[in-house]
Amino acid sequence: MNVNLDSKLDGARNSQAGLVVDVQAALKECNVLEVLDELDRELVGLRPVKTRIREIASFLLIEGLRKRAGLSTETPTLHMSFTGGPGTGKTTVAMRMAAILHRLGYVRQGHLVVASRADLVGQYVGHTAPKTRDILKKAAGGVLFIDEAYYLYRPDNERDYGQEAIEMLLQAMENQREDLVVIFAGYKDRMRTFFRSNPGLRSRIAHHIDFPDYTVEELMAIAELMLSEQMYRWDDASRGAFRQYLELRMKQPHFANARSVRNAIDRMKLRQAHRLVSRGGSVSAEELGRLEASDITQSRVFQGGIDADDSIGEAEREK
């Protein structure tokens, strides 16, 4: 808890009956609004997610005030699950969540440790426990983000060590609640089956947040944001071409929302560089910053899809 807030509330406690705390001031004093505004500003769309995060932040603030006033004694359960498609901002929001929890005083350090199955589960007997323990130590005082959590549990293989990691996580989630917040993330339907087969986990998770897929408009806004960050520009023709690209790409398999947009922009930059180099001659600063429609329309997406003549795509499809 913020020091100023503490002293303020200690003062208030002395006159328990007439306890009055200015919530707005308390909110301001722990600087959590900054993070929330940053979240609003830097992430396009995600309306329901942002609302949920604000709700959780308010709840935790009030819970802190209640604790100070002697109205509650238990630390609330903070473990969460983030579900949604790839590239919908789960990791980014988790990072902001760690900052919010830190400012509200629920985690001491406020860092985010991202782990997946390979970081937690070992290859042989006795390998899993030290690996999981190591990750838990690193994440202590912060947030442990377990990406694609359902890979931990493999019901088809009863000798799989994933269950051991799950049990250790459960134990840490229960016994080290002051030290650690765990966020499980992954696709919605697969997470649902994962929780159904691990009821112990589900009951220890307080907040489920679902990340919706982006609309074309939102993806365009994301792309504009990314471009301006990297000092690139579109003209009207290339903007239209990119919208067309997105509409086609969204119907094709393995579309990963904002991540696909970033990858598309990276490829556009490559094509622009190639165009400028092969043309030769002198280049103006204006041209260096501009992406043309031809940089976009050369994409395979316009020639029947990314899988059309792509051996990696083929392999993915056969799976």
């Binding site: 001491r108 350090q109 860092h111 838990l136 130590k137 690193k138 202590a140 005082g141 912060g142 080290q176 002051e178 030290d179």
Partner: peptide
């Protein structure tokens, strides 16, 4: 030895 640990609790 404990590398990459951020908090004193562990």
């Amino acid at each position: 030895p404990m590398f990459d640990v951020r908090d004193a609790a562990p």
